[in-house]
Nucleic acid binder design. Structure first.
Length: 337
DNA sequence: AAGACGCACAACCGCAGTGTG
DNA sequence: ACACACTGCGGTTGTGCGTCT
């Protein structure tokens, strides 16, 4: 007996509607991420489990930053890509607010071309291209090195960097979740529930409303554009969460983050009712999480990735980043970064 | 103004890894 | 040990939008 198709025929494909997003987030708010097979069945969504997971991890998951990549992020991606190859999930683990899909897209559509241009321009200054999956050579690794050696070295370096960063954070945040998560980041890489769900019960923790506020933020971004066009459907969508009775708004699809001045008061009310979260406006006006968030709050920015979170974003040239960027300052200069 | 083109990104597809009975 | 189910990952595609001609 062969493996059945992943998705039954008849499942909906294509862009997600805001109604579907809200239904999905609402379900995950209640049950937590995971057990994706059960999601379509329990929510009534005409989507396959894969699609639900993908939508959550790439778009609705709390703590996702979208839009422009900063110079630091760009450098990180370039270095990590050179180190790890096209292992986007691994790379994404070091850019906690970015998804692997986002990074992959950014690399394929922009960075790869940019690097190629740089390399073409600088090709007469010596070869920067290494063999195999390492596209950029490193002066500090001038000896030919097998993949196994590379990975061992990488693991050692990562471990040391994490340790150093953890120690650096420990004086002020000895009990902070950031350093704890950092230290445990490796073991948490593949455990989606480890951060905001009790891993035994898979139940949301008591601070769940905090983490889903940022989910609301993600949806709000798309809803902003949506509501601008169809204000009636928006209120309908909100009711869909509690009643699942909203007739579908045909032809309304998720659109790229079009930001408008549409009343955030309406959104605030909507999400306040959805998630019991009062300070939606604060979040919706903030594309990034505020550094003033408590450690507990930052803990819940992301449920699956090693949370070096605030370190990367808020700490200029954190130890980890320094480590990454210092691997070969010479290469950087050659590349003109 | 309109068609062609390129870009950005969400989503899909298929394979691989892992867990479970 | 094996088959199956589920999940995660990377490659690829489809589509909407902006820019160019």
């Amino acid at each position: 007996m062969g493996r059945p198709p992943c998705c039954d025929k008849g499942v909906k494909k294509g862009p997600w509607t805001p109604e579907e997003d809200i239904i999905l987030v609402s379900y995950i708010q209640e049950h937590g991420p995971g057990n994706w097979k059960a999601v379509p069945a329990n929510t009534g969504l005409s989507r396959c489990s894969k699609s639900c997971r993908l939508r959550w991890t790439n778009y609705l998951r709390p703590g996702i930053k979208r839009g422009n990549f900063t110079d630091q992020e760009e450098k990180m991606i370039i270095h990590l890509q050179a180190l790890l190859g096209n292992r986007w999930a691994a790379i994404a683990a070091y850019l906690p607010q970015r998804t692997d899909n986002d990074i992959k897209n950014y690399w394929n559509t922009y960075l790869k071309k940019k690097l190629n241009k740089k390399l073409e321009a600088g090709s007469d200054q010596g070869s920067l291209l290494g063999g195999g999956h390492n596209n950029i050579g490193f002066s500090s690794v001038s000896q030919p090195m097998s993949r196994g050696q590379w990975e061992r070295r990488l693991q050692t370096d990562i471990h040391m960097a994490k340790k150093a960063l953890s120690e650096a954070l420990s004086p002020n945040k000895a009990s902070s979740s950031s350093s704890t998560l950092l230290a445990e980041s490796n073991s948490n890489l593949s455990n989606e529930n480890s951060t905001f769900y009790n891993s035994n019960t898979n139940k949301p923790t008591t601070t769940q409303s905090m983490c889903y506020a940022s989910s609301a933020d993600n949806i709000a971004r798309l809803l902003k554009g949506w509501m601008k066009n169809t204000p009636k459907s928006a209120s309908c969508a909100a009711s869909a969460v509690t009643q699942n009775s909203c007739s579908s708004s045909e032809g309304i699809t998720t659109t790229k983050g079009s930001t408008t001045s549409t009343s955030t008061v309406e959104l605030s009310e909507t999400f306040e009712s959805l998630f019991g979260y009062e300070s939606f406006d604060n979040y919706s006006s903030n594309s990034e999480f505020s550094p003033s968030l408590s450690p507990e709050a930052t803990l819940f920015q992301d449920e699956g990735k090693p949370d070096i979170t605030t370190g990367l974003i808020d700490m200029p040239f954190s130890l980890l980043e320094k480590w990454l960027l210092d691997v070969d300052a010479g290469s950087q200069e050659k590349l003109g970064f």
